[in-house]
């Protein structure tokens, strides 16, 4: 021990090794925790998505029973890279799409939204899929806190100006969360534009075969 307190190079090297060891231990524990909890997290994610999907489609499209979701990966400007796109079929007929899309204009990325629409691209319901917006400010647009997201129901790309009222558009916004409100409005418009040009049949299926 005294050698360690008096011999400075030795002490420095030992300290370095000690730091390395503790660092490795930390990295290992994080990796282990991630590995151990990944299946449970994934399962919960899928379950939540399934229950969400059932409520997202427009009323006209859903409610015929026998609803099946076919997962594809979509990559397009306005949607994002490798975002899940669910083609909803009922009785072998396409009745609508549910798409997860990302917005680059929120306060902190990723801001992922999810929307359901029928085959003529009229929106069913828009919801937040994953949000890292500031708690208490950016999460005011959430369904739990306001009815901001309900105004998208039944809208289509044509017939409205896709901006918040503050900038002359047709959509209400939440004061105090204008940036997040605008991000959602413009991202939804971009997504609808992208959907018009997207060949949904040519998309690659998701991994895991859902």
């Amino acid at each position: 021990m005294s050698a360690l307190t008096h011999n400075r190079p030795l002490r420095a090297i030992t300290a370095g090794i000690l730091l390395c060891a503790i660092g490795c231990l930390c990295v290992w524990s994080v990796l282990y925790a991630r590995h151990a909890t990944a299946p449970a997290i994934e399962q919960r994610h899928m379950a939540r998505l399934d229950s969400m999907a059932a409520t997202l489609l427009p009323v006209s499209a859903s409610g015929q029973g026998d609803l099946r979701l076919n997962c594809r990966l979509a990559s397009a400007p306005g949607i994002g890279r490798n975002m899940p796109l669910y083609i909803a079929t009922s009785g072998g007929k396409e009745i609508g799409y549910i798409v997860v899309y990302s917005s680059p204009r929120g306060y902190s990325n990723p801001l992922l939204l999810i929307a359901g629409m029928d085959t003529s691209l009229r929106l069913g319901k828009v919801d937040i899929h994953l949000s890292r917006e500031t708690p208490g400010i950016g999460d005011k647009v959430d369904r739990r806190h306001s009815d901001f997201l309900d105004q998208f129901t039944g809208r289509a790309l044509d017939g409205q100006f896709w901006e918040v009222r503050k900038s002359g558009g047709d959509f209400d916004y939440i004061s105090g969360a204008t940036v997040t409100s605008r991000a959602i409005v413009t991202a939804t418009a971009d997504m609808l534009k992208a959907m018009q040009n997207l060949d949904t049949r040519g998309l690659a299926p998701c991994k895991g075969g859902k």
Binding site: I22, G23, C26, V27, S29, V30, A33, R34, A36, T37, A40, I41, R44
Partner: peptide, 16 residues
């Protein structure tokens, strides 16, 4: 390192 990995592990477990 300790605090960061502790928080990360805890948030994984809570999430799962």
């Amino acid at each position: 390192a300790l605090i960061a990995s502790l928080v990360t592990c805890v948030s994984f477990m809570v999430e799962a």
